[in-house]
Write a protein that binds this DNA or RNA. Sequence first.
DNA 1: CGCAATGTTACCAAACGGTTAAGCAAGTTA
DNA 2: TAACTTGCTTAACCGTTTGGTAACATTGCG
Lengths: 226, 226
Amino acid sequence: MPTVFKILLVDDEQDILDFLSYNLKKDGFEVHVANNGRDAIEIAKTVVPHLVILDVMMPEMDGIETCRELREIPSLKDTMIAFLTARNEDYSQIAGFDVGADDYITKPIKPRVLTSRIKALLRRLNPEETHIDKMEVGGIKIDIERFLVIKNGEEISLPKKEFKLLALLATKPGKVFTREVILHQIWGDEVIVGDRTIDVHIRKLREKLGDNFIKTIKGIGYKFEF
Amino acid sequence: MPTVFKILLVDDEQDILDFLSYNLKKDGFEVHVANNGRDAIEIAKTVVPHLVILDVMMPEMDGIETCRELREIPSLKDTMIAFLTARNEDYSQIAGFDVGADDYITKPIKPRVLTSRIKALLRRLNPEETHIDKMEVGGIKIDIERFLVIKNGEEISLPKKEFKLLALLATKPGKVFTREVILHQIWGDEVIVGDRTIDVHIRKLREKLGDNFIKTIKGIGYKFEF
DNA sequence: CGCAATGTTACCAAACGGTTAAGCAAGTTA
DNA sequence: TAACTTGCTTAACCGTTTGGTAACATTGCG
């Protein structure tokens, strides 16, 4: 557990930056600031903050987009991201985006509420809860962060759907995933795709990984084995 | 203890789904939604949520009926079910139904109350209660998750119907299952198959496992023994 | 022994998954 | 912008597995 938490504030309004910065520093946090998304990403890369507080509304690159890009950076995988929104703002849109935010903070901000909120957030950052996004199964390494599969030291890059499919099967090697479950997990609740779609993706995976990793259970589904 | 809890929301009003979904996702739950009871059952079968939140008032198939059907599904035996009711609704009727709900949540819903309520509910889901889907009987291991039967360390893969049949008989070794019960459990209520169908499947099982596991009780049915 | 209840076998139709090619939509490159 | 990629999905076709049945053999109870 680090002794001092690093927070990166991102907002285009200097007043808000100053206000938050002052309050957070007073509470013992190490505070960094950025006026826009672009700078934020650069600073985040070097500082590697524990928490990024992002204003949703910003010119050029908004909070959503910034968040998405931050989430792409492997070194920030344990960084938490919180959005800052006006209370009456319609953030139903935001909710729809699956950009991986950890919290929403509404303006106007009351300093005491903010810090307790932040502490609660950072409490989640303990080592035992950091989730596993790398797995190694039967000579195949799957790195969820980088969207990479490594087989015999060789990197194989898979398209999104194929990767998700493999990652799903690999979460429980040996367990049989029914076609139904696969559909729901990978394609979602409402999307309807044809029968052969799964097969084709399985085939492509087998093509790239070798035939002996994914086993078919006729009438049921597939499982990952070695 | 699972790291991420899966919640299935069922309501015919999209607004409520959105609202709850947004708040629950924010709290780190994996949220699935359904607009009606029928869909809910389908999704529940594949997703196997830890908690289902059911609106009582829904067109066509109401929450009560949906709950009753959910409770019939073996794979959901560890799933909790909570009803959603309007505060002033007369739910004395509901309480009367012994449909196996675990909680009632009243509208209007306050997000914070909701999540703490949910966390309390889920706390009841401790690991030792989780359902066993492996069994070992008389030198034969049946692994439902992997769809595998292991005899003398050797994996035997069985076709769907045969596997289900064996799994059924093995749930209660020694108990005699009448042909009627077997038909009902494996083929369902409406499908009608000929007299010899069961025999043939039994025969195939005996062929693969050896003759001395499944015993015939003439005039009654079959039992699994060793 | 007689006869209904099973066992057995061979056979057929339907179900299922594998494979390939081709159509799209979106993004890239020239 | 046109010509190519790339990723996802569908359609068509095929071989195999499967589930189910019919016909006949066998069993074992009363």
